[in-house]
C-alpha cells in the first residue's frame, strides 16, 4: 500500500530524515514512534506531498507522490500536528469546503459529511464557529477533515495531543475501528497510545529508523530475561535464600517491604524455563506463602528507551 524508499530530507546542513525505508500493508495500523524532533512529522509531510524529499521516493498504491501528486493526494487523508482549521468558518462550512477541494460532490457530499460528523461526534457543534470550539472538538474536526473523501490511507500526526483522558480513549477506539477499512499511519511520542492501537511500530530517532517490528517481537527481542515480581510473607533473608536455590533462577533482588511482614522480590530466569511452579512449591515447602505473583513484561517505555540507548552505544 505504502512504500517508502531511501527517503532523505535535508534542511541545509541539518538532516531531518536520513535514508529511511519501510512499507505498510493494506489495512495495517502502523505506529510511528520517536522523541520530539525525530523526523516523524517530516516523514509524514513528505508522504502527504506537503513538502518534497531531498532524495528517495514514496509510493502509495504504486503511484509516486512526485510524479502524480494529485492521484496520491486523493488516496490520503492527513491530520497534521496542528489541525488545519479556518477559525472563521462553522464546522459545516469547513467540511463543505474540504469536500469541495477533495472533489466530493453532489448527494455524496452531504451523506459523507453526515456520516463522518456522526463518527467523530461533532454533530452537535456543526453550526458553531471553529475558533470558538474547545481543543478536543477542534482535534475531532481535524480528524473529520482527514476522513472526507473516504481515502484509503489515513496519516495522523499525534492525533490525541491536547485531549482529555476520556477523549483520548474515544479517539483511540475510533482509530482502531477505522483501521478495519483504512490503512493508517499514526505518529506519537505517547507510548501507551501506540501500544493500544497499532499492530506494528517503527521507532525513529534523529531521522533514522532504529527498530521496526510488531510490539510482541520488539519486547521479545529485547527482553531476553523473563522477570517475575512476587510478594512473599516471610523474612527477607530466608525468602531470598529459598528462591535462589530454585533451578533456573538467575537473579534475585529485593524491592523491600510494601506490606507488613512481607517482602517484594524481583526474580529473573532464563527465557526457556518457566519457574513459576517450582517457585511455588519451594516457597510452600518453606512455609512462606506467596501473596502475589506477576510477570514484568517489558513496557513500550522500556523498549523505547532500550532501543534508543542501544543505538547511542552502537555509535
Amino acid at each position: 500500500m505504502i512504500q517508502v524508499e531511501n527517503l532523505t530530507k535535508r534542511y541545509g546542513q541539518h538532516v531531518a530524515v536520513d535514508n529511511i525505508s519501510f512499507t505498510v500493508k493494506p489495512g495495517e495500523i502502523l505506529g510511528f514512534l520517536g522523541p520530539n524532533g525525530a523526523g516523524k512529522t517530516t516523514t509524514m509531510n513528505i508522504l502527504t506531498g506537503y513538502i518534497s524529499a531531498t532524495e528517495g521516493r514514496a509510493l502509495v498504491n504504486g503511484v509516486d507522490i512526485l510524479e502524480e501528486p494529485e492521484e496520491v493526494k486523493k488516496m490520503i487523508g492527513y491530520l497534521p500536528e496542528f489541525p488545519p482549521l479556518y477559525g472563521e468558518m462553522t464546522v459545516m462550512e469547513y467540511l463543505d469546503f474540504v469536500s469541495d477541494i477533495k472533489q466530493v460532490s453532489g448527494q455524496q457530499k452531504k451523506q459523507s459529511m453526515e456520516k463522518i460528523m456522526d463518527l467523530v461526534k461533532i454533530g452537535d457543534v456543526r453550526g458553531r464557529l471553529i475558533k470558538n470550539l474547545s481543543k478536543g472538538y477542534k482535534q475531532r474536526v481535524g480528524l473529520a477533515q482527514a476522513m472526507i473523501g473516504n481515502p484509503q490511507v489515513l496519516i495522523l500526526d499525534e492525533p490525541t495531543v491536547g485531549l482529555d483522558p476520556k477523549q483520548i480513549i474515544e479517539i483511540r477506539n475510533l482509530i482502531s475501528s477505522l483501521g478495519k477499512e483504512h490503512t493508517i499511519i499514526l505518529s506519537s511520542h505517547i507510548l501507551p497510545e501506540v501500544s493500544t492501537v497499532c499492530e506494528r511500530v517503527i521507532i525513529i530517532n534523529k531521522g533514522r529508523i532504529v527498530a521496526s517490528d510488531t510490539l510482541e517481537n520488539l519486547s521479545k527481542g529485547l527482553g531476553e530475561e523473563t522477570k517475575l515480581i512476587i510478594r512473599v510473607a516471610g523474612p527477607e533473608k530466608h525468602v531470598i535464600k529459598v528462591i535462589s536455590e530454585v533451578h533456573g533462577v538467575k537473579f534475585v533482588e529485593s524491592q523491600g517491604s510494601k506490606e507488613k511482614d512481607t517482602v517484594d522480590i524481583v526474580v529473573e530466569s532464563s527465557p526457556d524455563i518457566d519457574i513459576r511452579k517450582p517457585l511455588f512449591y519451594a516457597l510452600s515447602r518453606a512455609s512462606y506463602p506467596i501473596l502475589m505473583m506477576r510477570t514484568m513484561g517489558l513496557t513500550l517505555e522500556d523498549i523505547f528507551l532500550q532501543v534508543i540507548t542501544e543505538e547511542k552505544e552502537a555509535r
Binding site: N45, T48, G49, Y50, E70, E71, K73, K74, I76, Y78, P80, F82, P84, L85, Y86, G87, V98, I101, K102, Q103, Q145
Partner: peptide
C-alpha cells in the same frame, strides 16, 4: 501562519 496551507497543499488540487 495558521498552517492551513497544509490542508490546501495536501488536497488533490493543483
Amino acid at each position: 501562519k495558521q498552517k492551513t496551507d497544509q490542508l490546501l497543499l495536501t488536497s488533490p488540487i493543483t
